[in-house]
Simulated scan of single mutants.
Amino acid sequence: MTTEPKAWESVLARIEERLVDGRLRPGDHLPPERALAAEFGVARSSVREAVRVLEAMGLIRTQTGSGPSSGAIIIARPQGGMEALMRLQVAASGFPVADVVSTRLLLESSVAGELAGHSPVDLADARQLLDAMDEPALTAPEFLALDARFHLALAEAAGNAVVATMMAGLRNSIEGYVLAGAERIPDWDAMAARLRAEHRGVIDAIDAGDPAAAHTRIHDHISGYYRDARTLSPSDPITDAR
Rank of each mutant, 00 (worst) to 15 (best):
A180I: 01
G58Y: 08
L129A: 03
G201M: 05
G113V: 00
Y177R: 13
A91F: 12
F143H: 09
T216F: 08
D228E: 15
D122A: 01
L146T: 05
G224E: 13
V111P: 05
G58T: 11
I60A: 10
L152N: 07
L152Y: 07
R242E: 11
F40K: 11
V47L: 11
L138G: 06
G113W: 00
P78C: 09
E108P: 03
N160T: 06
G41K: 14
A229Q: 07
T3K: 05
H221K: 05
A213F: 00
A164S: 08
A132R: 04
I238D: 08
E135H: 08
S235M: 10
E142P: 03
S66E: 13
L54V: 09
A132N: 05
S109T: 06
M191K: 12
V97W: 01
A148N: 12
H29E: 10
E198D: 12
S69G: 13
N172Y: 14
F95N: 15
R23M: 03
T2I: 06
G209K: 00
I203Q: 08
L36T: 06
A137E: 14
F143T: 09
G113N: 00
P211W: 02
I185H: 04
I75V: 15
Y225D: 12
A182Q: 02
E108N: 00
I206H: 04
Y225P: 04
T139K: 04
L195A: 03
E142F: 02
A190G: 10
S223P: 03
P234M: 13
V111E: 02
G209M: 02
A84Q: 14
P96D: 02
H29C: 01
G67C: 09
G201T: 05
A7E: 11
A38N: 14
T2M: 05
L59N: 09
R227C: 04
A7T: 04
R48P: 08
V163P: 01
L12W: 09
T2D: 09
V101S: 05
G81F: 00
D134S: 11
S69D: 15
T62V: 15
A229K: 02
V202C: 05
R77C: 14
L12N: 04
R104M: 02
A56C: 07
F95L: 13
I238E: 07
L146Y: 02
G81A: 13
S102T: 06
Q128G: 13
D99L: 10
A50E: 13
D134M: 07
A241Y: 02
A132H: 07
R87H: 15
W8H: 15
V53P: 10
M191D: 11
E175H: 14
E49W: 06
P96F: 02
G80S: 12
V51E: 11
G224W: 10
P32I: 03
G113L: 00
S223W: 08
